[in-house]
C-alpha cells in the first residue's frame, strides 16, 4: 500500500538553534483522527513537532485544555473535528466552533496571537487535508514565533 501513493516532499530538517514549535493537536475519534490515520496509511510526510490527543468528539475539548496547553508552553494548538453536518454526535462540532471562536477572543485579551489556536475540519477521507493543515499551521507558528510564556 505504501507504494500506492507517492510520499510527499519531506520537510526540511531544522537547523540547530532554530525555533522548533511545539504543537498540540486535538482530534475527534471519528473524522479527524481517522484522517490523520489515513495520512499515515498514505505515507504523507509532515513536520514531526505535533502531538495528537484523541477525544471522542471535538466538543470534549474544554477551553481549559487549550489554556493549559499554552500555559505549559505549547506554541500552537489545533482542534480538528468533523465537518459541519458530519459530526458523529450530530452537533458536537457546532458547540466546538462557538467555544473556539470565543476562546480566540479571550486569548487575544491575554496578549496571545489568537492564530496560535486554530479550529479546522478534517474528515476521515482527508489525509491530504490533515497533512496540509499540519504543514500550514507549523509554518504559521514558526512565523508567529515562540510562545511568550516560554520566554519568561
Amino acid at each position: 500500500m505504501s507504494s500506492q501513493q507517492m510520499a510527499q516532499a519531506e520537510p526540511k530538517p531544522a537547523e540547530a538553534g532554530q525555533f522548533e514549535p511545539r504543537i498540540l493537536v486535538f482530534c475527534c475519534n471519528w473524522c479527524s483522527y481517522a484522517g490523520a490515520d489515513l495520512a499515515g496509511v498514505s505515507r504523507l510526510q509532515m513536520p514531526t513537532n505535533f502531538r495528537v490527543i484523541r477525544t471522542m468528539c471535538s466538543a470534549r475539548v474544554d477551553p481549559e485544555f487549550v489554556l493549559r496547553a499554552f500555559a505549559s508552553g505549547a506554541d500552537g494548538v489545533l482542534v480538528l473535528g468533523c465537518h459541519p453536518a458530519d459530526c458523529h454526535y450530530i452537533g458536537g462540532n457546532y458547540r466546538t466552533r462557538r467555544r473556539i471562536a470565543l476562546l480566540r477572543v479571550l486569548l487575544e485579551q491575554y496578549g496571545f496571537n489568537p492564530d496560535r489556536l486554530k479550529l479546522e475540519w478534517v474528515s476521515a477521507s482527508e489525509g491530504q487535508k490533515f497533512q496540509k493543515t499540519i504543514k500550514e499551521f507549523d509554518a504559521m507558528i514558526r512565523d508567529i514565533g515562540v510562545n511568550p510564556i516560554n520566554e519568561e
Binding site: V66, P84, A85, L102, L103, L106
Partner: peptide, 26 residues
C-alpha cells in the same frame, strides 16, 4: 481549574445553535 474558561465554554455551548447551523460560515 479555571473559572473563566469553564464559564466561557458553558455560555458558548448554549448560545444559539441554529437549524441552519451547517450552512453558517466561521
Amino acid at each position: 481549574l479555571d473559572q473563566g474558561g469553564s464559564m466561557l465554554s458553558a455560555l458558548a455551548s448554549v448560545y444559539r445553535v441554529e437549524d441552519n447551523e451547517a450552512l453558517l460560515s466561521e
